[in-house]
Design a protein around this nucleic acid. Structure first.
Length: 208
DNA sequence: CGGGCGATACCCT
DNA sequence: GGGTATCGCCCGA
């Protein structure tokens, strides 16, 4: 019984993993195509992506990478398809997928999920919050629901060998996508790089 | 459903 | 030392 050291159950991915070239494009191009894809954990938790924001190094004053590479943002300058996880407001983790190519510092922040699977695990991770709607509505809520922290900074979402992956489960793309300014920033408001599924109850911010 | 407010620790100037 | 890619709780409607 040498497998006793791994306590976490591993389930089959509920979809097929995306390939590297999907992420190797400019973030504002990748972002809307991530809607209706699935962010999944190997322990069975999964949610459909319904809201994202693109951040682009060098030209985007709202991006963490705007002023160049630092210890905190190093992952964003790495290979596309990896996960950049950062800590904010003294208590919250948020996750992005790195886009374009190495050295660019661009990526897509995942802002909200519609819970699909492992909902009881999500509820436990979210201190028993009852409403499914509130489990993953917001970038820090979804990381908490899926168990994502700084430990996952830099993991490969394409190979999926480190516990998390982004999948295509065959769901059709959204019928309608809303683009607008990003949330929670003071600069870069002229870029319409927030994208969400029109009419989704699982999107953060004021309901449309 | 939406606004106001406090909590919190790390990064970078 | 200032600012932060936020959240939960409270309140009123």
């Amino acid at each position: 019984m040498s497998a006793m050291n791994n306590v976490t159950p591993r389930v089959r991915w509920p979809g097929k993993r995306l390939n590297h070239s999907f992420f190797a494009r400019p973030a504002p191009e990748v972002a809307p195509t991530l809607l209706h894809k699935v962010l999944a954990s190997r322990d069975g938790r999964a949610g459909r992506i319904v809201e994202v924001e693109a951040y682009v190094g060098a030209v985007d004053p709202a991006a963490h990478t705007y002023r160049g590479k630092t210890a905190r943002n190093a992952t964003m300058f790495g290979p596309a398809g990896h996960m950049y996880v950062y800590f904010t407001y003294g208590m919250h983790w948020c996750c992005n997928c790195v886009c374009e190519g190495e050295g660019q510092g661009s990526g897509v922040l995942i802002r909200a999920l519609e819970p699909l699977r492992g909902i009881e695990l999500m509820r436990a991770a979210r201190r028993g919050i009852k409403a499914d709607r509130d489990l993953c509505r917001g970038p820090a809520r979804l990381t908490q629901a899926l168990g994502i922290t700084g430990l996952q900074d830099g993991i490969d979402l394409v190979r999926g060998t480190e516990g998390f992956a982004i999948l295509d489960d065959g769901a059709p793309p959204p019928v309608s996508i809303v683009a607008g300014p990003r949330i929670g920033i003071r600069v870069g408001l002229d870029f319409p790089w927030r994208f969400h599924v029109a009419g989704s109850r699982y999107v953060s911010g004021p309901a449309r």
